[in-house]
Design a binder for these strands. Structure first.
Length: 167
DNA sequence: CGGCTTTGACCAGCGC
DNA sequence: GCGCTGGTCAAAGCCG
């Protein structure tokens, strides 16, 4: 089955959502300041903690590199998920390659990399100091292979992400 | 035995 | 020019 909805568009699978996110350099989920709980229908997850930290997230590529177009980085996609654990099993195999503490947050940020050959997808998981129940997952790059694990439990998480990316 | 996590150090970019 | 922050690597150790 085409289990490559939004974040993980298979090379052969061209879902409208995936192309949408690819077209726009950053389809960043702009929840901050625009997250009336109830309108989202995310009663399951409650409130998503509307903080404006995401605005700064995207400012990375636009610094002074666009002029030289050399340091162009893969588009990033960040998602907030309500989870007790940092490790969100999205069906891929990730290898942790670093961990750093961020000043804004008291919790450390973990850097993961897809262990698949030829798949240089990176992701970083960060927990919000304000809400320890909120985990921010930032994906960088695109997977070029199908999911190797069943997205059984991941499905419900995905549904949440879908709502976020629907913005 | 292989794969993965951990942790410290190193490096590059940016701001002051 | 210096200092800071973020990001990545690499060696060692652990676990399955």
């Amino acid at each position: 089955m085409e289990n490559c909805p939004i974040l993980f568009p298979c090379s052969s699978s061209a879902s409208p959502l995936s192309s949408n996110m690819v077209s726009s350099n950053h389809v960043f989920t702009d929840f901050h300041g625009n997250n009336p709980n109830g309108s989202l229908g995310l009663k399951a997850v409650g409130n998503i903690s509307q903080n404006g930290s995401f605005g700064g997230y995207e400012s990375e590529v636009k610094s002074g590199k666009i002029k030289g177009e050399k340091k162009i980085r893969n588009p990033r996609y960040a998602f907030q998920t309500r989870s007790q654990v940092d490790i969100l099993d999205d069906g891929f195999r990730w290898r942790k390659y670093g961990q750093k503490a961020v000043k804004d947050n008291k919790y450390p940020r973990s850097y993961y990399r897809c262990t698949h050959q030829g798949c240089n997808v990176k992701k970083q998981v960060q927990r919000l100091s304000k809400d320890e129940g909120i985990v921010v997952t930032t994906y960088e790059g695109m997977h070029t292979h199908p999911i190797e694990k069943s997205t059984d439990n991941f499905e419900h998480i995905l549904s949440q992400m879908k709502i976020y990316t629907s913005f």
